[in-house]
Design a protein around this nucleic acid. Structure first.
Lengths: 251, 251
DNA sequence: AGGATTAGTGTATCGCATGCACAGTTCATA
DNA sequence: TATGAACTGTGCATGCGATACACTAATCCT
């Protein structure tokens, strides 16, 4: 994979990290000599997604993937340069293409709401996405989702800077909320029996100057809140949208 | 560290994961026989924080810590059971005690704002906290911060369920925003020169059906936004608080 | 004094990413 | 049509981090 494999935009693209080049499909030309590749990055990513969906990200190991394909571990390095790059591609791959641009009819608030629910669905489908530590995902699908959000915000009346901030806020909310919901759900399912934990910590709270949390624990709010994930999500989303609307009005 | 080392609350506490027991200082009694410990979990945590502050979390390695103390790696296992437990304790340790309860005077909105800024300051001081993957931090300091937030929300007029949701929303916002700001800052600083990346990707965006992001890139909004972290943070915070206020009014 | 406890050491293992040299393929060109 | 450059995949080896285990040494209760 030398410079010669780069297409037209190659000159500048050469300065991009390999992962981004691959993510944007900037290395187009297929090799002309040598054996045909038995795999493809796409197949590898599909497999990785399957494994991750089934066993979580820790199950996604180069060794594991290679076994799945019946090749040696190092063979995979023909398709990406490092585990880190694989992670980046995996992230973008699992995120997928956002659904068609928000419907024209309806308020921008509704569009944003729809966007948020759609993105959330992706995270629910691939909860391990949060275990991938992708700092700044300048990848096609990531940005495509952002583009959709910007579209939804187009008639919000917010100025450019505000739109950017709103997008960051909304995107962050969806991700954060989804991650938190997943963590809590897992905790409930796996912990040393969540009840036992609360049973011990609850009483401690009052002793240690945390009466309000203690009260919440007593009321069982920490426990019974389960299943209300959707309602929780909508509540926060409404808050944010309502806050944004107000900001837009005040301009 | 057998059952005999547990204090009064020991019977029930025995079901708690070791890490939580230690975090809540439920194992109080000191050993009566044997050599004196040359270290303490507190010293280890202090050291770990120093290393993490200086070199990031990857620098925090059992080997590294042990070297710092001049003991063997395995000696550390006398103070915690696993790396995972160390991480939990480290998280709680670095979070620290929240400052005194929000001032009495002022609106609840101001209290919340102050709380958010205070927590954010902690994350700015220890950016590696986000690299620690603590799912559900039922630890003293974590809950202490939550308690402060609940205090601030006490006169918000929100009902119990809403307060819990508001707390999750605000807490999540601070964490998410701080993490994102850190990631972007790091990216700008270290990337293959952020400019080069944008220079290549920017033109691609228009070609690939993302005109709005392309426009943002053109305007340099992605680049120039730097340094506005505080303003960005306040904008989002205001949105949320304003949204919460509205919800409270409508009740 | 003696044994139970506990701290710290040394050695070894395991999982995982990864570097390197090499063998086997395939095709463009001389 | 031979020949070698361009490629794919293999085997072997290394390094790092966490962690198990067996052992020595210290300390104190009885």
């Amino acid at each position: 994979m030398t410079r010669s494999r780069l297409d037209a935009s190659g000159a500048a693209a050469a300065r991009l990290p390999r992962g981004l080049r691959r993510a944007w499909a900037l290395d187009t030309s297929a090799p002309k000599r040598g054996p045909k590749a038995s795999l493809s990055i796409a197949r590898i990513l599909d497999e990785a997604v399957s494994v991750a969906d089934a066993e979580g990200l820790p199950g996604v190991t180069l060794t594991r993937l290679a076994e799945g394909f019946g090749v040696s571990t190092n063979a995979l390095y023909r398709y990406f340069d490092s585990r880190e790059e694989l992670d980046l591609l995996l992230h973008d791959h699992a995120l997928g293409t956002p659904q068609a641009p928000a419907r024209e009819r309806g308020s921008w608030q509704d569009s944003v709401r729809a966007w948020a629910h759609a993105l959330r669905a992706r995270y629910v489908a691939h909860p391990w996405l949060f275990d991938l530590r992708i700092r700044v995902p300048l990848t096609p699908h990531s940005l495509a989702w952002l583009e959709m959000l910007l579209t939804a915000l187009e008639h919000s009346g917010l100025d450019d800077v505000q739109v950017l901030r709103a997008a960051a806020l909304l995107d962050g909310y969806v991700r954060w909320n989804s991650a938190a919901a997943r963590d809590v759900a897992e905790h409930r399912a796996s912990a040393v029996d969540g009840t036992a934990v609360l049973g011990v910590i609850g009483p401690l709270l009052a002793e240690r100057g945390m009466p309000r949390i203690a009260a919440l624990f007593d009321q069982g709010l920490y426990r019974d809140a389960q299943g209300d994930d959707d309602a929780d999500f909508d509540y926060g989303l409404s808050c944010i949208i309502s806050g944004l609307s107000q900001g837009a009005d005040q301009r």
